[in-house]
Simulated assay, not measured.
Amino acid sequence: MKTVPLGELIKLQSGFAFRSADYVKKGHFLVRISNVQQNQISLTSPKYVALDDKTRKFALNEGDILTSLTGNVGRVAKVDEANLPAALNQRVARITVASDKLDPCFLYQFCSSAAFRDALSRQGHGAAQKNVSPKQIEEIRIPVPSLAKQKQIVAFLDKALAGIGTVVANAEKNLANAQELFDVELRRAFDSLADSCNQLTLAEAAIDFGRGKSKHRPRNDPKLYGGRYPFVQTGDVRNSNHILRSYSQSYNDNGLAQSKLWPKGTLCVTIAANIAETAVLDFEACFPDSIIGIVVDDRLTTEFYVEYLLQSLKSTLQSKGKGSAQANINLATFANERFPFPSLEKQREITDHLDKMSKNISLLKANYSMKIDELNVMRECILHSAFSAHLINAQGK
């Protein structure tokens, strides 16, 4: 099957370097790298700009194909009516058809394939994160059967991928429902306590309660790192599942000297960026002041009871952190807040019940996630077949 460089068939445009000072409350939705997810444009953390004569050419149209040029390069999404009005930001490229030999839907399916992403990934350069240029996209070769065959392939893909999309959507809904089921039970467990037991502040229920320490500036000074003392960050807490068993960095003796080593069993609570994420340390560790450490008084409570308690209040705590450039809460958020602390026997009853439910929900979520992964692999296999000579020839028969 004949292949040609994409540059012979497409028009490619890089986005404009809008500044944060250009953001407005209402205007064109600015499509940034983070908004370009595979096969969809995410509306998370939307920013808006007003276009003028200089930037009007960066206004997007329905059907435009977008791809990321930095980081996780090669993610592809199509602009639909719901995204408009929208504008193209830097490090995002717009791909449009510039030849009557290429069907726009065929182009989109090709750009959505692993073949396109892998080709870009191989060409990406940069140590910290990959970058690709418009020219490198133009050099990628695309199979070009006749327009009739292209339309046949698109029809085949639309039918096959629509079915997979429906099953994936159902699995994702079930995944969300499983988490919601646990969240409802979590809130119910603590709402039922109400005022029927002792009410304590977190400081009153702990023998040590405070923020982590990382006094040295700059914080990323290499002379602090690479030793035997685990250094836990907010992302580590967020990515754990109740118990924090791994970490991404470590301090040496210099790092420890300007920080604090918290004991195994410390409950970590994030208060900046990733607000109200919680985990119990499975080892001694240091952490920065974006994490609160709670070493519970075991005469009054357990770290696992308090962890579940704070998880039941997660949405409330997160709402208190909104309003600044980076969401955050602090020790004062907890200073006067009183929480229910029933007898230790009742606390164990609650945590045992939630542990069992959490385990069952985790199994459900793992099954749904595996199903979604398998369906995505199937989707990639279908796309791969679609752009191989085998299927192109088969569709032509």
Rank of each mutant, 00 (worst) to 15 (best):
K135N: 11
K135Y: 09
K135S: 13
Q136S: 08
Q136L: 05
I137Q: 09
I137L: 12
E138F: 00
E138A: 14
E139V: 10
R141F: 04
R141W: 01
R141T: 14
I142Q: 12
I142Y: 11
I142E: 10
I142R: 08
I142T: 07
P143W: 05
P143T: 06
V144W: 09
V144F: 08
P145L: 11
P145C: 07
P145Y: 09
P145M: 08
P145A: 06
P145W: 09
L147Q: 09
L147S: 05
L147C: 07
L147R: 14
A148L: 10
K149G: 02
K149R: 12
Q150K: 06
K151H: 09
K151W: 02
Q152K: 15
I153W: 10
I153L: 13
I153F: 09
V154T: 10
V154Y: 10
V154E: 09
A155F: 03
A155S: 15
A155W: 03
F156G: 03
F156C: 11
D158G: 05
K159A: 14
K159T: 14
A160L: 06
A160C: 09
A162F: 02
A162R: 04
I164H: 01
I164M: 00
I164T: 08
G165Q: 06
G165I: 01
T166Y: 02
T166K: 15
T166N: 11
V167T: 14
V168W: 00
V168M: 10
V168L: 02
E172G: 04
E172H: 04
K173A: 15
N174W: 07
N174C: 10
L175N: 13
L175T: 09
A176D: 12
A176H: 07
N177S: 13
N177C: 11
A178H: 12
A178G: 12
Q179W: 01
Q179F: 03
E180I: 08
E180W: 02
E180M: 11
E180Y: 06
F182Y: 15
F182N: 09
D183C: 04
D183E: 15
D183N: 15
V184H: 11
V184S: 13
V184N: 11
E185C: 11
R188N: 15
R188W: 03
D191K: 13
D191T: 07
D191V: 00
A194S: 15
A194P: 01
A194W: 02
A194F: 03
A194H: 10
D195K: 05
D195P: 01
D195G: 04
S196P: 01
C197I: 00
N198T: 14
Q199F: 07
T201N: 02
A203G: 05
A203T: 00
A203K: 14
A205L: 05
A205N: 07
I207N: 09
G210P: 03
R211C: 08
R211G: 12
G212S: 09
